[in-house]
Design a protein around this nucleic acid. Structure first.
Lengths: 212, 212
DNA sequence: TATACGCCGTACCGTACGTTACGGTACGAG
DNA sequence: CTCGTACCGTAACGTACGGTACGGCGTATA
């Protein structure tokens, strides 16, 4: 059992060697390409490492998948800024930017692939991959947006019952059925312009619903 | 190749014998239980039929999955009514009912399981399972709602650019992040009351955005 | 009664893949 | 120089599972 440094099991990704990062990069790229039928053989081959090393580092296939998800999560993490003076225009501007970023991430091939894998493993055994994706995606994004929403509320720019509910509303207005359609394989390649437009429209509608 | 009646390949489900329906019922139940790791052996055992029969009827595993999805689709199909006189109250009432039904379907264990399977197969090979789910779910629902929306527009109860866009907006307001969270395994058991409340709120917000 | 057919149960085959084992190489520590 | 450690490459093992083959049984038709 305790034969290695156990890179999985709740650890964060700070203690990864550069080489391990390289391997995870290759694995992620491969995962985006072939989806859930990613095999340990292919990972070892494309990453030019041995399978034994993979098992030493990540324990098993599930551990590798978890490591991939967490590795990707640190790459999209955004620094959260604090909001001093906040007027209506600032608020709308920030909300729009947030929406654009969120949508770009969630419609990226990487995010779609990771969500697909997590979903396909969510139904069955005790895999917490879905939970990890939720934590690093949905909930992390909420933690990022809620302070902005609360600041807007404090400045009397808008009103809502809870920032959680407001976040969910914005999320729905923004993504609508786009994410589920992409997950199901619907070819709908969004241009950057379309993403920006969608974010702007969602922001406009959100303000119409919640502004004072 | 052409050794059997080929129940798959674009055929609709009308020419299924009662026995075939029984087998598909059992398979669907099993699919909800074990997800994508559904095996032909288990299906044969729980349905008390031989594997040879399964392959004769459905071709291969993919064909069985397609048949399961289509079999479920006919069970949730709703008759569409036409809208004669339509006043504001009628319209809101119907929209609310539609939202409640849609949400009940999409949050059911059956729908979640079917979407999971379709998603997990969407990334890779030439599986059109995702497309079939979209066609029988998302698009069929759109075809059901759009006439109502158009009727409402004709009666000057609301306005929108296209009924497609309006449908997407309602979809987003209704489901928000609920579907993706359930797909990812988030335990969030919605009571009937919560579903109704969510549909009512979505309807209210939709009207606030689109009523004239 | 005889033949045909559809279906059940089960044994079987081939292969893919997760996992382990092992030989070989590079390198730093003592 | 030698030992331990970390890693690569590859071969091998075990098993699960999709797909096939075959015998037996009930029923329908003649």
């Amino acid at each position: 059992m305790a034969k290695n440094t156990q890179a999985n099991s709740g650890q964060d990704q700070s203690d990864l060697t550069p080489r391990q990062g390289e391997v995870l990069d290759a694995a992620l790229e491969l995962l985006v390409l072939v989806g859930d039928k990613l095999t340990m053989n292919e990972v070892a081959k494309t990453a030019s490492c041995s399978k034994e090393t993979l098992y030493n580092w990540f324990g098993d296939r599930e551990g590798l998948l978890v490591a991939i998800v967490q590795w990707q999560a640190v790459k999209v993490a955004l620094p959260d800024v604090d909001f001093g003076e906040l007027d209506q225009h600032d608020f709308v501007q920030r909300l729009d930017t947030f929406g654009t970023n969120l949508m770009e991430v969630l419609t990226s091939a990487t995010s779609v692939a990771l969500n697909r894998v997590a979903i396909s493993r969510a139904g069955t055994d005790g895999s917490n991959l879905g939970g990890i994706v939720l934590k690093n995606g949905r909930f992390a994004m909420g933690a990022l947006l809620k302070p902005l929403l609360e600041a807007g509320k404090k400045e009397q720019l808008l009103t809502f019952a809870t920032s959680e509910a407001a976040y969910r509303c914005f999320f729905g207005l923004l993504l609508q059925d786009i994410q589920i359609r992409m997950l199901l394989g619907d070819e709908l390649s969004l241009s950057k312009g379309q993403v920006k437009k969608q974010a702007a429209e969602a922001t406009r509608q959100f303000m119409k619903l919640h502004s004072i």
